[in-house]
Design a protein around this nucleic acid. Structure first.
Lengths: 133, 133
DNA sequence: TCCAAAATAGTAATCATTATTGATTTAATT
DNA sequence: AATTAAATCAATAATGATTACTATTTTGGA
């Protein structure tokens, strides 16, 4: 009908990102979709993720072990990256928010802001305690 | 005298980082020092930067065009990354600060926090206006 | 159905970062 | 100054994420 629909694969890539709560890497999206779509190409995933980023449908939230991790939830919220297990956690906005959505420096125009904490998550902290006990 | 001094090259790498206000990449540090130290190796720069990060002497503040950018100023402050020219700017702490230094989620232990804005810097904004005029 | 443009698969290339290894430097001790 | 073990390094190769390329396929409209 209208010309603005995404191609089948493009839509599936976006859906996979939006429905995942894992803050996936391109590779994860590829591996996950590959089961349903055996002829999917990794390059296609990268190309579409870059497109989604330009269109603001997806944001890059962190770089973990050399892999970029993205989020299909573009609402303003912070993240926690566990250096132990590599998981990325959402930090609910009612717990912590970015103080200002735009940088107040004169003449600078802000498009996005990223607030990320690094450390050890509750699970990995707990595991470490067990090992030491 | 004491055993805790850095080797000559290690110290020079740290000095180059600390005295630069460019939020340099490993490659920039290498290219800059290479003039004074012709037998410097890029691997040595990477190895020492990783060491400095572990020791908390240096922090990774952003990934620009696939290159990690570091800061020798480890005091808590935010950064602005210009998507146009790739420069990384310090945002003075009296203008904006991270709301909370540690993530308040239960059981999570925070080691560091990074707040980064992305957009167009004043110089690039100005240049764009000139071109359009 | 037919066509032109957009999108894709598959593969090769790029490029930042890390690993390896043998030589050199350091630091502490005689 | 000489000795020696450990730390450090240069040079190079390897790794791995991302991008580029090209021939083929899909898409959406006439």
């Amino acid at each position: 009908m209208s010309g603005q629909n995404f191609s089948k694969k493009r839509q599936m890539i976006l859906d996979t990102i939006k429905s995942s709560h894992t803050h996936p890497s391109a590779k994860w999206v590829y591996d996950t979709l590959k089961e349903q779509v055996p002829d999917l190409s990794l390059g296609t995933v990268y190309r579409n993720i870059n497109l989604f980023k330009e269109q603001g449908l997806v944001v890059a939230v962190a770089n973990v072990d050399g892999e970029e991790r993205i989020d299909g939830d573009t609402s303003a919220h912070a993240h926690f990256v566990c250096k132990e297990c590599g998981k990325v956690f959402d930090i609910p906005e009612d717990i912590i928010t970015i103080r200002s959505e735009s940088c107040p420096m004169e003449g600078f125009s802000t498009e996005s802001a990223v607030l990320t904490y690094f450390g050890k998550c509750n699970f990995c902290t707990h595991n470490a305690n067990i090992k030491e006990a």
